[in-house]
Design a binder for these strands. Structure first.
Lengths: 147, 147
DNA sequence: CCTAATCGTTAGGTATGCCTAAATAATATA
DNA sequence: TATATTATTTAGGCATACCTAACGATTAGG
């Protein structure tokens, strides 16, 4: 797999913490496809930055600062994944692709995409153009009566 | 700036090559915000992978394999930037954000986004919902007559 | 309780991409 | 042509994120 970032560790810890109360080294490693020593090392680093609290042999928990970052990331993830689903990508692939993208989408673009997804999802009715778009993808043809 | 990838070097070389015939170390460095030695080093690496041909003190040119990658990247970049512009981001910011995203958007998602942009740009008329969306961004309100 | 298996950490090493400082090649100028 | 300026490369280091191998702690079974 590609090189993981601190943010991705934070996200994983966030998830495991909700399941088990504490995120243990081995679980994090398994979840992220790296070896335990890499996790130990990263936990030390994150602790140094005040993002996790880490008790050797016991596991890690996010500090409030770490939890804040996790929440922001997950929100971004949700937006991107939902967008991809709207475009017709299946849920599973969308989640995976969102993982790869979420750490590189920032600032104005992220805000706009969020609004866009919101705009579509809260539409009075499922907007017609979405259906037309999906049809266009399959057939390459626009619907006849399209205005 | 964040850490640059081989792909970004290839893109830069592609651009400079079109301007000057050869991409010189100093120009590449300036363009990418790194120091010349970093460029020399990367050129050696890219040459080793058969992506550029590099004559010390003269400059670099992409091999056919390198040029192919460059074209694909630029196409992806164009799609992403155009999409962001549709969402109402100004051109300059869109180009910048696209740079950050283009290397992490792959596979099915890239294909779908391309189709989506195409779908909008080739619409018989500028689709109405785009205007409605931009208005929604500004005011938070949907247009009255929206169906 | 004590040993065995498991889980985690420490130690040491690889790869990548960046840097500065110093040496060398190319180019422009006197 | 000789020298000064500029451009590029070489040499040596730093930081990050990963790894394997070896050691130490924890937990479970006998």
């Amino acid at each position: 797999m590609r090189k993981l970032t601190k943010e991705e560790y934070i996200e994983t810890i966030h998830v495991l913490q909700k399941e088990n109360g504490r995120a243990k080294t081995g679980h994090i490693a398994e979840h992220m496809g790296v070896r335990p020593p890499s996790v130990t090392q990263m936990l030390a680093k994150l602790q140094g930055e005040g993002l996790v609290e880490y008790e050797p042999y016991l596991g890690a928990r996010l500090t409030p600062a770490g939890a804040k970052i996790a929440r922001e990331l997950m929100a971004r993830h949700r937006v991107i994944a939902n967008f991809l689903v709207i475009l017709g990508i299946d849920r599973e692939a969308a989640e995976k692709d969102a993982c790869a993208m979420e750490h590189h989408m920032t600032g104005e673009s992220a805000v706009r995409l969020k609004k866009f997804v919101e705009f579509i999802q809260t539409a009075p009715r499922d907007p017609q153009w979405v259906g037309k778009f999906l049809k266009y993808c399959e057939t390459g043809e626009r619907e006849c009566g399209e205005k």
